[in-house]
Amino acid sequence: MPITGTPDISTFQGLVLALQQYWAAEGCVILQPYDMEMGAGTFHPATFLRAIGPERWNAAYVQPSRRPTDGRYGDNPNRGQHYYQFQVIMKPHPKNLVDLYFGSLKYLGIDSLVHDLRLVEDNWESPTLGAWGLGWEVWLNGMEITQFTYFQQVGGLECFPVTGELTYGLERIAMYLQNVESMFDLVWTKNDSGLVTYGDIFLQNEQEMSAYNFEHANTDWLFTAFDEAERSCQKLLDSNLPLPAYEQVLKASHTFNLLDARHAISVTERQRFILKVRNLAKQVANSYLFSRKQAGFPLADAALRTQYLDEAAG
């Protein structure tokens, strides 16, 4: 049932609630953020793992995203080491996913007859996840507000059926809707005692976390932590436990990002670290597919299930 009515998008939390409402009405499971550090909503198991194999899956969630190198000590109005993505995942994607997406903008009050909306070619690739897809960045009057991707490969495995992924940049959209020039000026909510801004909640966090990322993170320990995550992941894979093994991939990936922010990794080593994470991600993907096969792909359509199970047998 498509949603009707007008949401309150004058606040940041109103925007999140509106998107949740919209995609809930389109049949998505509304999930909560994953409780680990990650660079983007794509890393959430609800995207990375669920994009693998034949099973149906529709979900939407907010994911706090951490990119240590993007930290600016709260000085840059458009950039932070911590920000929010709103992620929508649909597998197989409905034929009219593009229309549904523009429908969500309309629901947010963005009139496509006033604003210039554009789908501009963008080929997405994540070297660490062994994943790539084709799609667009969505432009609103020249500003990128969403990444739209049809996954072709994840963890080195072909995506079939194809998952459609939408990643809304929440701060950017909110800055537009609220007409403010700095993310820290965004109104998070309004209550009887006045306004609560994004800055009230996150400015100190940006300042302190930037200092941690760039100056204080203990690189010796981080190198150890990376190695340990890699070892644990391998052990967990040996025990056929893809979900905890994947958490070790997340740990390794974020640890690598921190080391990168500390300039602790040289250019050549960088490639080696990325390859290590990708190698783990690929093994986890295979292990996860195997585990779902053992379970008989319960969420798949009959025809596809048979096809996948036969393939597995052969």
Binding site: H93, N123, L134, Q152, F160, P161, V162
Partner: peptide
């Protein structure tokens, strides 16, 4: 660059 979509080959 070629892509697939939906449940089609």
């Amino acid at each position: 660059k070629l892509m697939r979509w939906g449940s089609s080959r």
